[in-house]
């Protein structure tokens, strides 16, 4: 007897990225379920751009994303914590330059 008998198969999870009108890059806004890529795009349009937020949408299957793990947190990110010389803090940025 199958253990999944009677349990509904779930549509796969997708991650949604939206580029806002003034945005320069796509921003992760959430996730949703969809049966295929096309449906994921229409669902993203209906769920995440209904308040006039976006001009472009990306969707990607969540299981296609490779992510760093918690265990790697220190070796990945701790070494950059004391490298202050890598920040461009030695320049003056004009007040009227946005998106920086």
């Amino acid at each position: 007897m199958s253990s999944t008998e009677g349990v509904k198969d779930e549509w796969p999870l997708y991650e949604v990225f939206v580029r806002g009108k003034r945005g320069l890059n796509h921003v992760h806004v959430g996730s949703l379920h969809a049966a295929d890529d096309r449906m994921a795009l229409t669902h993203a349009r209906d769920l995440y751009t209904r308040r006039n937020e976006g001009v472009s949408i990306w969707v990607v299957r969540s299981d296609h994303i490779a992510a760093s793990t918690r265990d790697e947190k220190d070796p990945f990110f701790a070494p950059s914590a004391d490298k202050v010389y890598r920040h461009p803090t030695f320049y003056d940025i004009p007040d009227d330059v946005p998106h920086i």
Binding site: G20, T49, N52
Partner: peptide, 14 residues
Amino acid sequence: GHEDDARWAYGTGF
């Protein structure tokens, strides 16, 4: 046209 900068989540330019 995006003076309402802080409220990106609600969209702009209606």
